[in-house]
């Protein structure tokens, strides 16, 4: 197990390094942030001063060397725009995004699992077909369009739910969260559902396929021959086997929920990381982009690790080993 963790850590470090080289080189080729940030009326002297203060007068490999040295001591540089530590900027926005992603994930599982199990048990029933039709819609309708329609219906016409912002937050261990106030819950409902819709469809499909497949297996027939009640066969024998593929997919999807909630955050004006990164890319704010991507890499690694560990708990045939 410790060998496994160590090899995982090593992999993450290599990924971080490769990613930072690519992003550094890529951004260098795309353009000069000074051109974007500086007003056209600035004098050449001012311009040189800014370039010098950002360290952009050095050759790119020297810039990268400086970045690497600072990164190793935990400093990912200051934002060109906000002149604040990039890491600090991102961590400030992170709770909002994590909260949104978590709410979406819970919705995806709470709705997707039961619907998927039902559709798997009665694949030819009318309700099952309706569920599958819904999941096709969930897959194919663009997120932004559904978001807009939801705002139109629930916020504008019915007036039931607010359409933007986080609402009231309370500090939990110093982190502001919306989930624990009524107003906050009302604010998170629409964006979370919007974000969850695709995942619900995904969970339904995977669960249905898993249930259908597992029902054909010999041990289910044997469980019936043992005289077990149908509820136990489905909820214990079938479900536990169905969870195995589900965990893998959910793990990957959780990562993408956190890292790429950009569209939903933009539509519902949710003050999360997604909006920050889009703005930063527009102005080539290299330290923020780099810091954001590094955090994403670490997050994906941690999620994958959690998935692997969960996997080995659910499926005893899986053993964790370094390779």
């Amino acid at each position: 197990m410790s060998g496994y963790l160590f090899s995982r850590l090593l992999q993450t470090l290599v990924t971080l390094f490769v990613m930072s080289v690519l992003v550094f080189g890529g951004l260098h080729m795309v353009g000069n942030p000074v051109d974007v940030l500086l007003s056209p009326t600035a004098t050449p002297a001012e311009r040189l001063e800014v370039i010098r203060s950002f360290g952009l007068d050095q050759p790119v490999w020297v810039q990268y060397g400086i970045f690497l040295r600072n990164a190793l001591s935990g400093d990912l540089g200051n934002s060109f725009v906000y002149n604040q530590p990039a890491l600090h900027l991102i961590l400030q926005r992170m709770p909002a995004t994590l909260e949104l992603a978590a709410a979406a994930l819970v919705m995806a599982l709470a709705l997707g699992l039961p619907l998927g199990i039902y559709a798997g048990l009665r694949p030819n029933g009318g309700l099952a077909k309706a569920i599958m039709a819904f999941s096709i819609l969930g897959f194919s309708l663009p997120t932004f369009w559904i978001g807009l329609v939801m705002i139109m219906v629930f916020a504008v016409q019915l007036g039931w739910l607010p359409s933007s912002g986080r609402g009231d937050t309370v500090d939990v261990f110093g982190v502001p969260l919306s989930l624990f106030t009524l107003d906050g819950l009302a604010h998170i409902a629409l964006p979370a559902f919007n974000l969850a819709l695709f995942k619900i469809s995904l969970v339904i499909r995977i669960t249905r396929a898993g249930v259908l497949e597992t029902l054909q297996l010999d041990f289910v027939r044997f469980a019936r021959a043992k005289g077990l009640p149908e509820a136990r066969i489905v909820l214990v024998h079938v479900l536990k086997n169905t969870l195995i593929p589900l965990i893998t997919v959910i793990g990957l999807e959780l990562g993408s929920l956190i890292a790429f909630a950009v569209v939903t955050e933009t539509i519902f004006a949710w003050p999360g990381m997604g909006k920050l990164i889009i703005d930063s890319i527009a102005v080539l704010d290299r330290p923020v982009i780099l810091a954001y991507l590094m955090i994403t890499v670490v997050m994906f690694s941690v999620i994958n690790l959690a998935v692997d560990i969960l996997y080995s708990i659910v499926d005893p045939r899986v053993r964790l080993e370094g390779n």
Binding site: D218, F219, R221, F222, A225, H237, N241, D315, P316, R317
Partner: peptide, 14 residues
């Protein structure tokens, strides 16, 4: 009742 395939008659994750 007993079936043919002992490798698959038992649930692998229980």
């Amino acid at each position: 009742m007993i079936f043919q395939e002992p490798m698959t008659s038992l649930n692998p994750v229980l």
